[in-house]
């Protein structure tokens, strides 16, 4: 297989990631409706597929309002940060053999770094809005995402130990025989939970919490700035699903079908799982969230790392 030109890869990944996340808005609404015995949007176009287009027109033509009590420069920068950090992470994602924008030898660390920078978007949006609820949302986001990042990184170290590299392409190649979901099942579960928390999805959507914080950090946002948070969230879950597929489910590896199709099937399955989580689980309380992170997940991640390390050493 010939390697495509880097710019072609960049454009391709950008287009696919953005259109996939836009399409996800429709998928989420339809699937939530399915699990609540409803229909969801089915009026605009075939199966309501053009609903995304209608939403986009709406969001583009809305008034782009900056509240007078907001800190204007930070208020404007915040939604851009989330888009930039998430899209940057897509750069190191090996989609199929040869289809990767930048095959960094520290790809995994790059992903972790970008996801940790993504917190700023939420925190600064909450602070710059000059609104108590938004500030509370930002504070929650800061506490939640730092805590969950710690064991997110630790849960991945088992995979790194097994593969012996931070290079995502090499990690996928190393799973040719056995997907890491089997030897690293605990790590897989931990990363899944941390990923949900990183993407701020239910049951960990404390920073938004419509019921108590009136949409939290993005209460004051409107128009395309809100749209960027919205698309950023869907890009985030696409990214987390892709990372799960790459790190634990063997990326593009799979019999019969072409690699790209396998990758997309795995990613889509996890996207659906994320939506299923939203459909079924209630939001946690904040102290429950923090104690789950630090008292359950963190020790489990450490144990996982220690046991994996011991086994890897013993086998050598």
């Amino acid at each position: 297989m010939t390697t495509p030109h880097p710019i072609a890869s960049i454009v391709g990944v950008l287009i696919v990631a953005l259109s996939l996340s836009a399409f996800l808005i429709w998928v989420e609404r339809r699937l939530l409706a399915l699990w609540q015995d409803r229909y969801g949007p089915n009026r605009v176009g075939p199966f309501g597929l053009l609903q995304v287009l209608a939403d986009m027109i709406k969001i583009f033509t809305k008034e782009d309002w900056i509240p007078p009590f907001a800190d204007k420069p930070v208020f404007v920068i915040a939604p851009a940060i989330i888009m930039v950090t998430v899209l940057m992470s897509f750069a190191v994602l090996p989609v199929a053999p040869g289809i990767v924008v930048s095959d960094l030898n520290i790809g995994l660390l790059f992903f972790l770094g970008m996801s940790s920078l993504g917190v700023y978007s939420i925190v600064l949006a909450g602070w710059a809005s000059g609104n108590k609820y938004s500030l509370l949302g930002g504070l929650r986001a800061a506490a939640q995402m730092i805590s969950y990042e710690v064991f997110m990184g630790l849960s991945l170290m088992g995979v790194v130990l097994l593969a012996g590299t931070f290079d995502l392409t090499a990690i996928v190649e190393a799973q040719r025989g056995l997907w890491y979901v089997i030897p690293q099942f605990l790590g897989f579960v931990l990363f899944l939970i941390a990923g949900v928390a990183e993407a701020r999805r239910l049951p960990f959507d404390l920073p938004e919490a419509e019921a108590e914080l009136v949409a939290g950090f993005h209460s004051e946002y409107s128009g395309m700035k809100f749209g960027m948070f919205f698309v950023g969230e869907y890009l985030g879950i696409t990214l987390i699903s892709s990372m799960i597929a790459v790190l634990f489910l063997g990326g593009w590896n799979g019999p019969w079908l072409p690699p790209l199709v396998w990758f997309l099937i795995k990613v889509f399955a996890f996207l659906c799982f994320f939506i299923l989580l939203r459909a079924s689980l209630p939001r946690m309380r904040f102290d429950q969230l923090m104690s789950l992170g630090w008292k359950v997940m963190f020790p489990l991640a450490l144990v996982n790392l220690l046991v994996t390390g011991a086994i890897v050493l013993a086998k050598r």
């Binding site: 699990w35 015995d37 409803r38 459909a279 079924s280």
Partner: peptide
């Protein structure tokens, strides 16, 4: 909740 995929829609 997943089993609701196979229920009749109301």
């Amino acid at each position: 909740v997943f089993l609701h995929s196979f229920r009749r829609r109301v």
